[in-house]
Design a binder for these strands. Structure first.
Length: 694
DNA sequence: GAGCACTGC
């Protein structure tokens, strides 16, 4: 029989908890407990309710780690328990982070509803462009991890929060990793602060050992009792329906063909239920959709009652919404998706999952300073997450297009954290702004390579954002840290304020912050190119964007106008939002907006002040438009999407590189080499390595 | 004449 903890009485430790839905929750105060130890405890100890276990752990442990396979939905109740138990009294706030904006909004509104309060009052949320909180009134606040990091710049110890819960920590996003490192640091100065980390079982051990500090040097004169420094672990397993896993017997040579065959076989042999297929990208997805649709048109018409839909982030919003429409009677929905359906979008009616075993992943080479996107095998954690998508409605099946032997022996158990696959300039500048001087010695959850850190420090030094002691320069370094942009874009924007063209450059900065303002349309390439020519100018893409922006404003921000001109309306709305936010930032920094009134030379000089390191020169007599980077002599080409494609000016500066079969420069402007030396003499003439950076 | 996994400030 379940026992309930009564306030005021002492709770035993360790505790074992019964899930009201019939599953069993284990609580262990030791990260090393094995499941057999837990099983023995379970027989000996009283059983407690979930709520009591949470409160027990939060009261007694500095850090609580909640593990379980993801999507248990168990974490949304926690802020309510904490609030009822008095953790939000006296102006204190309970914070809960999520890695995605949409998740913040949906969890916040669900919790507000469950608590019977108006969203934006006792329960609120904060994401970029949207602050739905009332200071003094909001007791439970949901926010993205990135917003919480920004808040630390004004309040490094996050003093207004009593408890900080970090959800989906197993995803190991860049911001989550930075946040966890910073929170561990804050804990030493704030014994009253409680952390709750929610993670998938597979990451439990690394999370627990990261937060396990044996440090006894917390001052004894603190008034607050010092909580147990060993993390308490609560395991919440057993939610969701079982998913039967099927493997192929032999490795498949063509996973597109195998995908199509598997979908058709499911359709022929399995009961009703939608199918979700995981492929790597737009190309594969469109090919698979076509193959299944051709099958549909085939005289034998095996798939005539299949509704095949593609899903990827670049798809226009209206097409994305199709996947949520109810499946017509007698039809079976087949959604062919990228990783977007692994975490960001949830399809409720899915009973069958087909997992190709691959996804596109970002990698970073600190030597060449280039990020690339490559198709690579997924991890076991990812494979489990994909399979789990089949068990939300009722028991489901997952068909893996790889062998069981491969899964067991060769598939890596966890993916490489984003921190170790990224360019670190933004990360480093945020840490510097928070006063963390020793970046190389920082206590990271997973340390990035020394090469990557040194490379980031070098880039920031060359931009004048860090000085010779690797400290933020004033005012430039501090201003760059304030701006929510890539540091090179920030530098460009701040320089433009001095050069009298900030009105234009703030628009360019906003456009460079969104994926692409063009609509990708295959099959209507000619019309698309013609539309683009209406805006194109010889100076390059950045100046072309100014024309698009002007046209969009002149049309009254019309979606019809965008449609006619092959421009992505959603992206343009985002450009407007970002531009407004940047203007507010600039005003707060005391900088003025000024137009250069068509002085495109000045405009390009401002761009160079941020991007001088991305300068390339056309190889003489090169028949195919080959460029070489001035600094590293790497071979690069102008991307066919650029307005300067085939124009091939002698000297160009690019915004970013995309690596496919060639290295392509995206967003390119033509420049005069003399401007480069003028803007960055330290970079192109005197090349002296700075010993303080090493 | 080729291509853009996914987030976030």
């Amino acid at each position: 029989m379940s026992k309930y903890w009564k306030p005021g009485s002492e709770r035993p430790t360790p505790v074992l908890v019964d899930d009201e839905e019939g599953g069993v929750l284990f609580v262990s105060t030791s990260s090393s407990s094995s499941s057999s130890q837990l099983e023995r405890l379970r027989q000996r100890l009283p059983v407690y309710k979930y709520r009591d276990a949470i409160l027990y752990l939060v009261e007694n442990h500095a850090t609580t780690i909640i593990v379980g396979e993801t999507g248990s939905g168990k974490t949304t109740q926690i802020p309510q328990y904490l609030k009822e138990a008095g953790w939000a009294e006296g102006g204190r706030v309970i914070a809960c982070t999520q890695p995605r904006r949409l998740a913040v909004q949906s969890v916040a509104s669900r919790v507000a509803e469950e608590m019977g309060v108006t969203l934006g009052e006792e329960v609120g949320y904060a994401i970029r462009f949207e602050d739905q909180t009332k200071p003094g009134l909001t007791m439970v606040k949901f926010l993205t991890d990135g917003v919480l990091i920004r808040e630390m710049m004004d309040d490094p110890l996050l003093t207004k929060y009593s408890v900080i819960m970090v959800d989906e920590a197993h995803e190991r996003s860049l911001s989550t990793d930075i946040l966890l490192g910073l929170l561990k640091k804050i804990q030493r100065r704030r014994p009253d602060l409680r952390l709750i980390i929610s993670s998938a079982t597979i990451e439990a051990k690394s999370m627990a050992s990261f937060f396990h500090t044996r440090k006894k040097n917390i001052r004894n004169d603190t008034i607050d009792p010092v909580p147990n420094q060993e993390p308490g672990i609560l395991s919440v397993e057993g939610k969701g329906y079982t998913v039967e896993i099927h493997y192929v017997e032999e490795p498949v040579s063509d996973y597109l063909q195998a995908t199509v065959e598997t979908v058709l076989s499911i359709h022929d042999n399995e009961g009703p239920g939608d199918v979700l297929v995981f492929l790597t990208g737009q190309d594969d997805i469109e090919a698979a959709v076509k193959m299944l649709t051709d099958e549909y048109n085939h005289p034998r018409g095996r798939s005539s009652d299949l509704l095949v839909l593609p899903l990827y982030s670049g798809l226009p919003r209206s097409d994305q919404d199709l996947i949520f429409a109810p499946t017509p009677r007698g039809k079976r929905k087949v959604v062919i998706s990228t990783n977007i359906a692994e975490t960001s979008l949830t399809l409720e009616g899915v009973v069958y999952v087909v997992d190709s075993g691959f996804s596109k992943q970002k990698f970073y080479n600190p030597i060449s300073d280039i990020e690339s996107l490559v198709t690579a095998p997924i991890s076991k954690a990812s494979a489990r997450q994909r399979a789990g998508r089949a068990g939300r409605l009722r028991p489901g099946k997952c068909f893996r297009l790889y062998t069981e032997e491969y899964y067991l022996k060769d598939m890596p158990s966890e993916g490489i954290p984003e921190m170790q696959r990224s360019n670190l300039v933004s990360c480093i500048i945020q840490m510097k702004a928070l006063g963390i001087d020793n970046i190389l010695g920082f206590d990271w959850l997973s340390s990035p390579s020394a090469e990557a850190m040194v490379r980031a420090l070098e880039v920031l030094y060359s931009l004048g954002i860090l000085d010779g002691d690797a400290k933020l320069t004033s005012p430039l370094g501090f201003q760059v840290a304030e701006l929510p942009l890539e540091p090179m874009v920030s530098k460009m924007l701040l320089s433009s304020c001095e050069m009298g063209c900030s009105e234009e450059v703030v628009t360019i900065a906003a456009v460079l912050s969104v994926q692409s303002i063009w609509v990708s349309m295959r099959g209507v390439q000619k019309e698309f190119d013609e539309a683009k020519l209406r805006f194109a100018v010889a100076e390059g893409d950045h100046v072309t964007y100014l024309n698009v922006y002007k046209g969009f404003l002149k049309s009254g921000k019309s979606s019809q106008w965008c449609y006619r001109n092959f421009i992505n309306y959603q992206a343009m709305k985002k450009v407007i939002d970002i531009r407004e936010q940047l203007v507010r930032f600039l005003k707060r920094l005391g900088l003025t907006l000024k137009s250069c009134e068509g002085d495109l030379k000045m405009l390009r000089k401002a761009i160079i002040s941020g991007f001088f390191a991305h300068a390339c020169q056309l190889e003489e007599y090169s028949p195919n438009g080959m460029y070489k980077m001035l600094r590293s002599s790497q071979e690069v080409y102008i991307h066919p999407s650029s307005v300067l494609f085939r124009v091939n000016p002698k000297c160009v500066v690019y915004h970013s590189l995309v690596l496919t079969d060639k290295q392509y420069m995206r967003n390119v402007i033509a420049v005069d080499p003399a401007w480069l030396i003028e803007a960055a003499p330290h970079f192109y003439q005197i090349r002296k390595p700075n010993p303080a950076l090493f």
